[in-house]
């Protein structure tokens, strides 16, 4: 039973789309909505519950859903296998770099009020800074979760 399951799972992922067109169409149709929700959650984190991590998990969930339904080969177009870890490093770098920028411009580390953006008062600068670092968190979380899924499956 178990071995059969495992083979089925792997074959589906290696070879292509699964048999049932209903699942196929549903997942393809649902994915954009999940992604939109993820982006909304990420951008609306300032005003309501949400933020980078939750948005990142939702985006990752949509792509993992596509991987499950389309198979690993077809979903490569959406997110290639080699991409996640460099992308995660990039996300964390956006975060760390924002802090470093503030430090180079004379403040403490991560003090967004020193970010070199003209014509904004410190409070607005913090608002922008929070948005930027949440973007870094989103990218990092999304790509790491996809990477964990890929690695668990491809082992």
């Amino acid at each position: 039973m178990n071995e059969v399951n495992r083979d089925l799972l792997l074959r589906r992922h290696m070879e292509g789309p699964i048999v049932s067109p209903i699942v196929h169409v549903c997942c393809r149709g649902l994915a954009p909505f999940i992604q939109i929700t993820g982006l909304y959650v990420f951008f609306h984190g300032h005003y309501s519950p949400g933020g980078g991590f939750q948005g990142g998990v939702l985006l990752a969930a949509s792509i993992i859903m596509l991987r499950m339904s389309l198979g690993l080969a077809d979903s490569q177009r959406i997110m290639p296998n080699r991409l996640p870890i460099p992308l995660a490093a990039l996300g964390a770098l956006i975060y760390a770099g924002t802090g470093l920028l503030a430090m180079l411009w004379g403040g403490s580390y991560l003090d967004y009020s020193f970010l070199p953006l003209p014509m904004l008062d410190p409070a607005m600068l913090r608002y922008v800074g929070i948005l930027v670092i949440e973007l870094g968190v989103t990218i990092c979380v999304m790509s790491t979760l996809i990477s964990i899924y890929d690695n668990l499956l491809g082992s």
Binding site: A89, A92, A96, M103
Partner: peptide, 19 residues
């Protein structure tokens, strides 16, 4: 900034090593 730089250098290196 010295106390920050010590762990931060390692963090940055950890990100750059895969790249």
């Amino acid at each position: 900034n010295l106390p920050l730089l010590i762990p931060f250098t390692f963090l940055l290196a950890a990100l750059f090593v895969p790249l």
